[in-house]
Write a protein that binds this DNA or RNA. Structure first.
Lengths: 232, 232
DNA sequence: GGCCTGTATTCTGTATACAGTATTATAGTG
DNA sequence: CACTATAATACTGTATACAGAATACAGGCC
């Protein structure tokens, strides 16, 4: 917890964004553990900025659901419960289905070619055992972003992006397994084909399966984590 | 636009909340017009507070979608386009359907009795021509809140509440028509019965209709508003 | 020994000050 | 008269200061 917070420098971004990104990735990679208190002055000192941008960054994190705030008591890293995970996944599944339906209707054919390239890029990374899991996760997200964007619904894009963030902490876990990675590439291919055919029914079935698999993988990884925690 | 911003005083609420509520209702009731710039110092002076809580309140409004911010240029009251309204309603309909399904599964019978009372309260207000439309709108929302809560999904509750907020500016309009009010009470009754029977399919059909009607009513009221604007 | 109370300390909430960027107004030039 | 350059202004972004609430700890009391 005395982990080194390295500012993700970027000359021309507002400080609050830089602080936000820094804290966010610290939470997601566990440098800031769930339940840990986030004190404005401490963080400000450690990051070499004043309290103001830290404060604003913490408020942004609260909206992402990564931090919870209690009035006059400050913020602490959110401790995601299984219940909350279920809640998020329930909403997310419903919206992923909406998204793929609308994408089947509305996505321009040209964008499908780009989507294909995204799928190919993911496959390449997934096949390489040595590749960085974070990069792999980002590539997976890039693929799904094409579906989101295909809906042409800005609000839907925003809500889905936010819901996905809630699960960042688990996303890397389920990519470790090589079998899962293989399944994922196959699923991506199938989804892509369904969208190309503009067959909403088929695409919905596929994406439902895709989410269910992901959900199951996350639960498994939580189980394992619990077991390990018990052992030690 | 030099409208009087009266602070909604509340001794023990943080100032940012008070400012947030004040600005929010000013936007929703049109005291602050769409497109109008929100300048921190000006607002702070007018409300008799410093820039800090104003700043935080504006950030909160941004998340509600009532305000848009451009870096280094400040904030202005969001100008909702028909496109955005469509986007919100598309997402909202999908989640209202999810909500009623889950409510049919999960709502405790005891809560259904409370829901019935909420429906009755709405009917009473709706029947009285002289009643306050804002109060009526709130009563309508209270009814729907029971559905949301019946899902037991905290995240779903939050997302739906936020989406509903986006349409506050229009909500009063479509309650003015007495025929619509009558339809609404009938629809509420029917929904309630379907939930009591735990008949998800029926309830979904009803709520879809309910949302579609609302959507149509809002479009009509926009049309009328546009016509009036053209006339003058 | 356990509980309560008073005090010290730490932290948030709010106000204010300062710096630097956008925007607007003004003057000068072709 | 238009158009550019420059200066003034107005605002946000960031830092800092101050006040009061929450917490922790110590000492007294039962």
């Amino acid at each position: 917890m005395a982990g080194e917070l390295k500012m993700e420098m970027n000359e021309f971004l507002p400080l609050r964004e830089v602080v936000f990104n820094t804290l966010r990735s610290a939470i997601l990679r566990g440098t800031l553990a769930p339940g840990e208190r986030l004190m404005e002055l401490t963080l400000a000192d450690r990051l070499g900025v004043s309290r103001t941008p830290v404060r604003e960054a913490i408020r942004m994190l609260e909206h992402e659901g990564l931090v919870i705030m209690r009035p006059r008591r400050g913020a602490q890293v959110a401790n995601i419960t299984v219940q909350e995970l279920n809640d998020v996944l329930e909403v997310r599944k419903s919206l992923e289905i909406l998204a793929i339906e609308k994408a089947c209707e509305r996505m321009p054919s040209a964008d499908m070619d780009e989507m294909e390239r995204a799928a190919a890029a993911f496959e390449e990374l997934a096949a390489d055992d040595s590749s960085d899991l974070t990069a792999l996760a980002e590539s997976d997200e890039a693929f799904h972003d094409f579906i989101y964007r295909g809906t042409g619904n800005q609000r839907l894009i925003r809500v889905l992006a936010n819901l996905r963030e809630q699960m960042y902490r688990f996303r890397v876990e389920y990519l470790k397994d090589e079998d899962i990675r293989k399944d994922l590439t196959a699923e991506h291919r199938a989804i892509l084909e369904a969208v190309r055919k503009r067959s909403a029914a088929e695409a919905v079935a596929l994406i439902s399966k895709h989410i269910d698999n992901q959900q199951k993988a996350i639960y498994d990884s939580i189980q394992n984590a619990d077991k390990e925690a018990t052992r030690s």
